[in-house]
Amino acid sequence: MSGAFLEVRNLYKNYGGIAATDHVDLDVRESELHAIIGPNGAGKTTLISQLSGEVPPDGGRIRFAGRDITSTPAYRRSLLGLARSFQITSLMLDMTVLENVSLAVQAHAGHSFRFWKAARSESELVEPAMEALRSVGLGERAHDVARAMSHGEHRQLEIAMALATRPTLLLLDEPMAGMGVEESQRMVEILRNLKGEKTMLLIEHDMDAVFTLADRISVLVYGRVIATGTPEEIRNDEAVRQAYLGDEVA
């Protein structure tokens, strides 16, 4: 049982009589890229929100790096090394790109009850932030206001912020949602570069991306994991074909 980096057991979440997360078991191994696929409404985002600590589960347990985090608040999970990106872009839009990422660095650089020194001139914050921005190809946009950027760039910024917290586990909620072909390819490239370095749990609708990137895939249907395996195994799984891939692959 133990050994998995992220271990979800019997996780349960009920929304008005409907099981959004229906006794989910999930193991994410260290440094693998684990993808979760499933039709719309399968409860993917609900699952991630429980893992990141924003939505409290109704039952079950979550273990992360050997520690039970089921009732740990979101900010503390982040401090433990768990970072998430949001499906619907979630940024400080009135701040610059660099400020957004600097804040992510700052959150992990001790407490922020520091009232005197100008944060923008602290190289301790700015340098790691710039590094994270360059790693997603946004180095040039550092001083632009986040609001002024394109959707695709917002997604990249999301990843940069998650990276700036120096996470050991990245929860990525549809990083390619709403992206054009070119932007998607750039994102695939970014994720490929992170592979092996970070453990990642990826929710994505873009099947090409998922099957290219993932080491293992879990299929979520109506809140339940119906299969887990390598891309090859999932592609050939009968239940998966019927439940999900059916109309696309067949």
Binding site: S78, M92, E99, A107, F115
Partner: peptide, 21 residues
């Protein structure tokens, strides 16, 4: 200051601020 950045960030997007720690 750092403190001020947190306050402003929290005005912009409190949920995100919690998610980054």
């Amino acid at each position: 200051s750092r403190f001020g950045m947190v306050i402003s960030g929290s005005k912009g997007n409190d949920r995100r601020m919690q998610a980054i720690g």
